[in-house]
Design a protein around this nucleic acid. Structure first.
Lengths: 146, 146
DNA sequence: GTGTTTGCAAAGTGTTTGCAATTTA
DNA sequence: TAAATTGCAAACACTTTGCAAACAC
């Protein structure tokens, strides 16, 4: 906490610029997503956060909205887990730490890591993105005996 | 047809060494998986390949077998796509090219790529794996006008 | 024989879709 | 008012599970 939120009108403008009508649901979801620092969130999580905040919105609309925002480049979808989609409010290229055991997912700025020796891209294709995930596991205690 | 298979006994021994009873289904699936070079495959794909080869095995058993093989380190599960699990017969650390449009998935040997500047691993955790995927898209024609 | 494995069908999870009602511009 | 958006419930795709029958040792 303690960071400055962008004013409401920015969220409204972001929607307008993306060509999305600023409906009550989209505005409310956008505020949850963008006015609180960078976030990694699933549809279910965003939906229950909306419920908690007394925002009436259906899960289907949350899914639709997340995809519309992704298409409009307001969000990035990250593949971390088969069976669940995560959306990242950080749309600048960067990498991740992920600990499956506790669901922890955190950003690593792209400039922190250098990737060298990328092989030639197959003919007829171009690079869409570089996904780099450091998968973590909880360290066992020293006197491990399992 | 027509490829050189490793002798049947190798597959049988791999199962035995993994502590898995060499049942008809497990042997047949292991032969499909391991006797034909490195493969990336989903449960559905392996199941239909089994059907094609007149191997009677249920989809549930294919799922169970893939997970048992993964637990036994005979396979590696790779996260490439939310909503579908891929299994890789290459269990040595390595990276991937992936083109979503055509489902193309290919290996990049670990020694080809150098990753430098890995940040400190969060306290209490250790690195389980490094997942690096170069996501590709089909290149648009030169006279692109979209 | 005894414990393991299988197959089926049912249940579960996360996600998408069809469509009438509502809202926006 | 016309077009876009929403919500619901049903449909979906993929995966897991419960349990009786079949199998391996």
């Amino acid at each position: 906490m303690g960071y400055t939120s962008r004013p409401y009108t920015n969220v409204l403008n972001r929607l307008k610029e993306a060509g999305l009508r600023p409906t009550r649901q989209r505005l409310a979801l956008a505020r949850l997503l963008f006015e609180d620092g960078h976030r990694h969130i699933t549809a279910e999580q965003l939906h229950s956060q909306a419920m908690t905040n007394n925002i009436k919105v259906s899960l289907a609309t949350v899914y639709n909205t997340l995809h519309q925002f992704t298409d409009a480049r307001l969000l990035n979808e990250i593949v971390i887990d088969s069976g669940r989609s995560y959306f990242d409010t950080n749309t600048v290229p960067h990498y991740h730490f992920y600990c499956e055991e506790d669901g922890m997912l955190s950003d690593i700025p792209a400039e922190t890591v250098q990737i060298a020796g990328i092989p030639n891209i197959p003919t007829g294709t171009e690079l869409a993105s570089v996904d780099l995930v450091f998968r973590l596991r909880r360290k066992r205690a020293a006197q491990d005996a399992a």
